[in-house]
């Protein structure tokens, strides 16, 4: 009885294969699928590293001590300057990488802890390379200039130091007139006449020269004329 049933199954399956003209899926499809899965995992890993390096760059390059001049409220300042977009991208791509890693043929063979340690190490190495080579800073600048909406969601130190009314100004020195005065173009390309008397330069060994990018704390001198800034602290950009 059972033997008859078995033959039935075998016959049924072969009949269905013949009737429906079922063919084995070509090998290249499986190869592509597996390589595709690994490609997504690697790409996600790179994006995770990139977002991590950008988060670190934005955090480290940020001048947390000037929040009093900028908004006066530390919590508000942290909320505004936390790069939520990069944090979301970071978390989303972690999920994507884990999902596709499990879809690869070999993924399940690695233990969770082993995969986690290897993954974290690789991400730290890649994000360090990206940060050390200055690529994260460059990329942030490129995004600010070329990606519409980026400035709205990701605030960095350019936003802090672009508020002369609050005494915060930054830009490039284009001409040193004398010991007490130089001309600076801010990052929006406005020209400023900067007067420096009893100025504090940090670090003390930093020399101001033509072409240097700097940030300054001071005040706008309205009675001195248009775009005149009296500076009391100068820091390298």
């Amino acid at each position: 009885m059972q033997e008859k049933k078995n033959n039935d199954i075998s016959k049924k399956v072969l009949d269905k294969i013949n009737c429906d003209k079922i063919c084995p899926t070509p090998k290249w499809c499986f190869v592509c699928w597996n390589y595709g899965s690994w490609f997504i995992v690697i790409l996600s890993g790179l994006i995770i590293s990139l977002s991590l390096s950008l988060m670190v760059f934005l955090f480290v390059s940020h001048d947390w001590d000037v929040y009093e001049l900028e908004s006066g409220n530390l919590i508000n300042h942290i909320i505004v300057y936390t790069p939520f977009v990069w944090i979301i991208i970071f978390l989303l791509f972690i999920l994507l990488a884990v999902f596709w890693f499990n879809k690869t043929k070999q993924g399940y063979k690695f233990g969770s802890l082993k995969s986690l340690i290897i993954g974290v190490l690789l991400i730290i190495i890649f994000s360090s390379i990206i940060a050390i080579t200055g690529f994260s800073a460059k990329l942030n600048d490129e995004f600010r200039q070329g990606l519409p909406g980026y400035k709205v969601f990701v605030h960095d130190k350019c936003d802090i130091w672009d508020d002369p009314v609050k005494g915060l100004l930054s830009g490039k020195i284009v001409e040193i007139k004398n010991n007490d005065e130089f001309i600076l173009n801010d990052f929006n390309n406005n020209s400023w006449q900067v007067q420096k008397k009893n100025v504090k330069i940090t670090p003390p060994r930093f020399f101001i020269k033509n072409g240097s990018n700097i940030k300054m704390i001071g005040r706008v001198c309205e009675i001195c004329g248009n775009n005149v800034f009296i500076v009391n602290t100068i820091k390298p950009w």
Partner: peptide, 20 residues
């Protein structure tokens, strides 16, 4: 069970090239 078994063998046949 037999329906599941039949589906299994069809699936296996379709994926024969995926067998490592």
């Amino acid at each position: 069970a037999d329906d599941i078994l039949q589906d299994v063998f069809i699936k296996v046949y379709k994926n024969l090239n995926d067998y490592d």
